[in-house]
Design a protein around this nucleic acid. Structure first.
Lengths: 188, 188, 188, 188
DNA sequence: AATGAATGAGGCTTCATTCAT
DNA sequence: CATGAATGAAGCCTCATTCAT
């Protein structure tokens, strides 16, 4: 984890460096957590971002803050992807799979902080997405009346968790199999 | 040396302490991991067992060895519980829920070492249990022909993982909901 | 950036900010040192003053410079307070007690830099105050002939030091008791 | 502070090393604190003692614990020195001066923790010494009836504090001068 | 001249692991 | 064999200080 692919950046002091570094740190955190798990040294994130440790601490005072920022990006992506009127629960599973395959350890990080205010807020945003999609699907008769929001939340959680602990090579297969199960479980 | 509930044992030098210490260590490990998660200090296990650190290392040279020993106990319990001829997949889920509710962090520990020879072997023992139960259920027409062993393995894994990261207070509800989903997914 | 009582100042670029910032910094330093001790982060002083760290460094290149400036204010106050012709050693003790009760950590800061040129110079100014008062008191026969300037300096130093490490609630009592001792020691 | 006079000790593991290391650490702490002040790196103490950092932490979980242990030694020395029936307050001042000249920073360390239970207990032991001596001196008419225990405690505290912040070269003179003042203040 | 972001050295602390007794 | 002290690497985090804007 030493001579990493750490971006060679010119030392960038002063006002304008702020947002730029923040982006670099989020990107680096995503990579490092995916690669080494959530207990990866905080310093590894800083190094990967090509940024001093101090800066990392300025932007994200603790692991939770960093995780929440990453989760926020994920939720935003989910919202964006499911915004159009014709999106279904299957589309939701698509993003989840995409994200889980990429972010792995993020889920654990969030679970560890499931009572953090920011995390709770993000969870609510996610729930609203599920609510909206589910209402439409029920309306259209695509899913059975026995299904509620909590069912979908649980399914998504279990899927993401499972993907997070599956070897990269097997993830596609696992995703397919799990989705088939849920499709059947939720069918009308 | 703290106010731990560390077993008060007479200093136990000399012979025959072996198996006794081993049992104490496994018991302690299960408790400590459940309480503090898998990153609990190795020394905490020894202390809880009322045993020197050196002895812990003698019995279990590393975390994986300890985890495997715990997992072995779990698999044995699963085998015992599902041995009778009238046991169904529902009974399998019962043990899983019982164990997951208790062992939490063990799952992660196993996942981290999923390529360890011992762990693989234990996984195979588990798969045989599933195989046997599933064959019987298929025979009896209790589950659909579309279901295979991997489906059950996946379902069990997702369930256990989800329980492991659910607050104790919510576990029963989560277990119930998840089992309903899987029942529906696997129905003939 | 916290819930500090940091002065809300209009961004003050350009001229004439110099003296204003300097005053704000001295005031802030006195407060911060009193509150958190002399190991308070340098940055805390800047923040409390509502001023950038760079400005703090411009005005006071290091801790000693800042301390000397504060001490200078103290000495000036002592000079002012003891200037009138009818002031006695008791009046000197008054200021010392007042200052010690307020500035606490400042004393240590000065002690650490007791060989700094500025500090030495300030010590001399203080000695002159003592000299003048003592001469008058000797003349008037208020103190014994056995007393010299060094005695007063020592007494003042011990008193200030003691007050600096006394809980606020006990300072008044300690001051009274100590002054009684010195009065007796110096009596003619 | 690198290639210190750190004792070259053979690595000494196992049971018996405990007390030996403890002594080495106390000795080292006294030296290091005297030399570099109380903010000396904890690691410097360990190095000077020729001991790993971990061991330092095992013996003294924090600075206060270490300071209390040192203070305990001091109080014991005071008790021993003042035990004989013919000892006077002057003898008490002797030990104080001896100790202050040697331990310097210890005083501050204790002051910082003046509310710690151990420190309070040690303070009580000290007070008892003073009580005993003072009673005898009052009886003998060596000190005035206006003097009480708190007076002596205060005097000792001021003296020790002053010595702690006096350059080594000047300590003898300061001690002499201060003792003269107190002798006069307490005279019958 | 003022600002505050960035830096990185260095102190603190925890633990996995070793090994004398 | 068991014990638990000792070790030291490694992560955490906090500033003092610099400097682009």
């Amino acid at each position: 984890m030493d001579n990493d692919e750490e971006v060679s950046r010119k030392v960038n002091r002063g006002r304008a460096a702020g947002p730029e570094n923040r982006r670099a740190l989020l990107r680096a955190a995503r990579e490092v957590f995916a690669e080494y798990g959530l207990s990866a040294p905080f310093s590894a994130v800083a190094k990967r971002a090509g940024v001093g440790q101090g800066s990392l601490y300025r932007h994200f005072p603790d692991r939770t803050a960093l995780a929440a920022a990453l989760f926020e990006e994920n939720v935003a992506a989910i919202e964006a992807h499911t915004a159009p009127d014709d999106r279904t629960l299957e589309d939701l599973f698509d993003v989840i799979v995409d994200q889980a395959v990429v972010s792995t350890a993020l889920i654990d990080l969030m679970v560890r902080n499931r009572h953090d205010a920011h995390v709770v807020a993000l969870g609510d945003r996610f729930r609203q997405v599920v609510d909206r999609l589910l209402a439409r699907e029920l309306q259209a008769g695509h899913v059975g009346a026995h299904v509620d929001t909590a069912d979908i939340m649980l399914a998504v959680g279990m899927l993401a968790g499972e993907l997070a602990r599956t070897d990269e090579a097997d993830r596609a297969a696992v995703a397919t199999r799990a989705r088939k199960q849920f499709r059947r479980a939720f069918a009308s």
